[in-house]
Amino acid sequence: MESKIEVVGLNAGFGSTHVLKNISLSIPRNRVTAIIGPSGCGKSTFVRCLNRIHELVPGAWVRGKVLLDGKNIYDSDADPVEVRRRVGMVFQKPNPFPAMSIFDNVAYGPRIHGVKDVHRVVEESLKKAALWEEVKHRLSHSPVSLSGGQQQRLCIARALAVKPEVILFDEPCSALDPVATAKIEELVLELKENYTIVIVTHNMQQAARIADYTAFFLMGELVEFGETAEIFENPRDKRTEDYITGRFG
């Protein structure tokens, strides 16, 4: 399998807290990779290192390499802004910009990056996020009136609008009900045609349903990484087995 992101010896933390310990992992192109593990295992920090969002928290530090198409995003000549454009992110809680209309939320990214045909990009992105039909008549409304699931799909559309190559999902369904969750999962499966997807989840069923590959993190270490079926049916490590059979976490 061809890899899109190659993580080599990644260490990260806040101040004196060492959160990620020497992670090496390759994330395959146009596949869904799930990151699972108990809370506090560093899975969120891990994905936040993949688009250089982690380092924005005061006191945060990163060491090691993250190669995006073979080029280290932490090189001194790498532009974090460009990295973040290429590696999009959808957060745990839907976070549309409340002071902007639905349209402007999606148009925000393209406008920043100087895209000409903003209207077309917005429509395309909303369609890809399966939200177009629900909002096409109220594009000028505030996103605050949307349901939680709709808001999350708006955030997905917003991320798609800057034409990223990778999309990171940080527990995107943890604030949503089961129906909205099913919609997001369906969407993730559609998106993998064109994007490389990394999804953090605490829900093992979700990983099993949508991920091609799964990585199991425990206390800041990568315990096991492989095809999802392998991880779930035939884990090599005792700790992985304990976790997926529900003995802890």
Partner: peptide, 10 residues
Amino acid sequence: LREASLALGA
């Protein structure tokens, strides 16, 4: 919200 914007490459 700041993170959301930064993550879009702003």
